[in-house]
Amino acid sequence: MKIAVPATAPDLDAPVALKLGTAPYLLIIEIETMAFEALEAPSNSAGPGAGIQALALILEQGVHTILVGFISPGIAATLADNDIDVITRVTGTARAAVEGYLAGQSGMNKKQTPAAGPISSGRLIDALKQAVNQFRVMMPILLGIILLTGLFQGFISKDMILTVFQHHQFMDALAGTLLGSILAGNPVNSYVIGEALLNMGVSFYAVTAFVFAWVNVGIVQLPAEIAALGWRYAVSRTATALLLCIPMAFLIVFFVGVLP
Rank of each mutant, 00 (worst) to 15 (best):
R89A: 15
S106I: 15
I146K: 04
V132L: 13
F254R: 14
A38P: 04
V188M: 10
L162R: 12
L27I: 02
I29W: 05
P118M: 10
G49A: 05
L20V: 08
Q112L: 11
K129C: 08
F170D: 05
A209L: 05
L243D: 09
I66A: 01
P247A: 05
N133C: 10
T93M: 05
H167Y: 07
K111S: 13
A7P: 01
E30W: 02
T91Q: 07
N216R: 07
L197V: 10
K158M: 12
A9E: 09
G21F: 05
I84K: 00
A131V: 15
D126S: 13
I75Q: 00
A41T: 06
V132Y: 11
Q169L: 14
A56R: 03
K110C: 02
W231R: 13
A94P: 07
I28T: 01
M108D: 00
N133V: 15
L142T: 11
M139W: 08
L147M: 05
T78W: 04
F155E: 15
M1E: 09
V220D: 15
I58E: 07
L102N: 03
D83H: 09
A173W: 11
R95W: 04
A96E: 15
E37Y: 03
K111C: 07
P15F: 06
G144Y: 00
A96S: 13
A41H: 05
L183A: 07
W214Y: 14
A184I: 15
F255W: 14
G117Q: 15
L259K: 08
G21M: 10
G218W: 00
A184P: 07
V215D: 00
M1P: 08
I146D: 12
L59K: 13
A96W: 05
R123H: 10
A213L: 02
E30M: 06
A173M: 12
E60K: 08
S72V: 08
Q221R: 13
S121A: 14
N199G: 13
K129Q: 14
M34D: 12
I246Y: 00
D81R: 06
I66G: 02
E99T: 06
E99R: 04
D81A: 13
M108W: 11
P48H: 08
Y25M: 04
P10D: 11
G194T: 02
N82C: 04
F165H: 02
E30K: 11
F152H: 02
I219A: 14
Q169G: 03
N186L: 10
A38V: 11
S203F: 00
F250W: 03
V16T: 12
A227G: 09
M200T: 06
L251G: 14
D126N: 14
Q221S: 15
L151G: 07
S120M: 02
L128I: 13
A227P: 00
F152R: 03
L178V: 15
G21C: 09
I31Y: 00
Y101M: 05
N186W: 06
A175D: 03
F170H: 07
I71V: 15
G51V: 05
I125G: 00
F70E: 15
T91S: 10
H167P: 07
P114S: 10
I193Q: 01
D85Y: 04
E60L: 08
G150N: 06
V164L: 14
